[in-house]
Design a protein around this nucleic acid. Structure first.
Lengths: 257, 257
DNA sequence: CCAAAAGTGTTATGTCTACACCCATGA
DNA sequence: TCATGGGTGTAGACATAACACTTTTGG
């Protein structure tokens, strides 16, 4: 940790500069870590060990250091909290600096979104009483209160994911390295809250060259039987919009259900 | 200006709290103000009066106060710099906190985008030597060097506008309260760097009910003649995407040119 | 009348939705 | 052979790009 505590201890400063002319803030990064389990979207929360909001659930985060960039701070915090190095999935989506959002002092936080597949073991690795994966619905319906303004940050993060789903390849970040199209479709259905036609979904996804790549392998069907599904892996991400688009399905029924 | 200089002067703090345990930052808001003149996209710059980067061009901005939100700080800075109250057009698009981006101290800035029609008189109202409207091309081609990391911030802002054009009604913010469809089309063409078919553009824009509203009035044609254009005003913005979409025009020619 | 700019009509092409139908597997 | 889920075919609806054509002005 830095010993330097702020502008008053800075030395390489023009003599004309008066540090008391600007207000001092603490700057933190907070990370909304989203993951799918089955057909529900979850968020990783930690229980706060100290005041303020001691004992309440919050999203992980911490102070930015003067020697690191915001992205580095987010990557470091994510790594410290979950042990995952998921640099490519980290994206900044907002800054929050309302007065009073932290009762101790003036804090501006920069919020990041991270999408992980299967955080299960990672959470088990940390102190079990400290971290939990909960359905985002619990946060959105306020069945679970979060510290600070973290509820709003989680809401904004989810809206961001909904948009990113439509224009980037972020969906593959929710599933394993090899996945079926049904799994991938479940990601869209859970996050958008819609039903998608399995046939058209496959066409959209497979048509866009390089979006998903067949591995040649197949799954073993479940106890109920059914044709084995092809396994795909993620292709390169694209620039000009993702392959699937959000639409309401008025009278459409899903043959595979 | 606040006299409180930071956490060390805060009083309503738990006695267990040690302010030296987090690094102090200055927090600023910087605003990329974009405007159209004719068929070019411009950005409002100010010349810095003091160190660092004294005499260089920069985007307007200033310190956030602990008593205001980030949005309020941006609105205040915009008002102080241009006299415009354009709250609805202000949107936050990024935070920048690389170490060393300000040689004086650790500064995290939150960047905002503002789109204005006709900043001409506003700039004339300020000290002429202090503010200027320059084509964004001058910044993007680095014919004009900006202070701090402001070039990157401007680049990010323009990319943001390109995306917003496609999904919101932001285009009308660039033109006057009454405008022709040719003016509106010029906004898209300038920002996307494409040629749009005038006929199809009209259909897209007029078809979406409420996007633009006919005023009944018409323009007087220029010296070269031509049919007078209808004048429209902006309708309500929409949620589910704007009416015009970015496409390359391979062999398409524009009859009206 | 001619040039210029605005606005309308039209057609070929492409995309998407909905659903029928076929395939592969477990019990 | 039946139930279950995966995968393909396809017809109609809809959206779009391109460009010919008409309208209205100034000179």
């Amino acid at each position: 940790m830095e010993t330097r505590t702020g502008p008053t201890s800075s030395s390489a400063v023009p003599s004309s500069y008066d540090p008391s002319r600007f207000p001092a803030f603490a700057v933190t990064v907070d990370i909304v870590i989203l993951t799918m389990s089955g057909s529900t979207l979850n968020v990783l929360l930690v229980r706060r060990g100290e005041a303020p909001f001691q004992g309440m659930w919050a999203i992980p985060g911490g102070f930015k250091r003067p020697t690191e960039t915001l992205d580095e701070a987010a990557r470091r915090e994510l790594s410290e909290e979950t042990g995952v190095d998921a640099a490519s999935l980290l994206s900044q989506f907002g800054a929050y600096g309302d007065p009073g959002r932290d009762p101790r002092m003036s804090v501006v936080t920069v919020a990041y979104l991270a999408v992980l597949r299967d955080v299960g073991e990672l959470v088990a690795g940390t102190d079990a009483a400290e971290a939990a994966i909960v359905p985002v619905a619990d946060v959105l319906t306020e069945r679970l209160d979060l510290a600070f303004d973290h509820e709003r940050i989680v809401r904004d993060a989810i809206e961001r994911v909904r948009v990113e789903l439509e224009i980037t390849g972020i969906a593959t970040a929710f599933v394993g390295t090899a996945f079926t199209l049904a799994e991938l479709r479940a990601v869209y259905e859970a996050i958008w809250g819609v039903q998608l036609d399995a046939a058209n979904f496959r066409r959209s996804v497979v048509a866009d060259e390089g979006w998903v790549i067949p591995t040649g392998r197949r799954t073993r069907p479940g106890a109920a039987g059914g044709r084995p599904a092809e396994l795909f892996r993620a292709g390169r991400a694209w620039s000009r919009g993702g392959p699937v688009h959000r639409v309401a399905r008025p009278g459409g029924r899903d043959r595979n259900r």
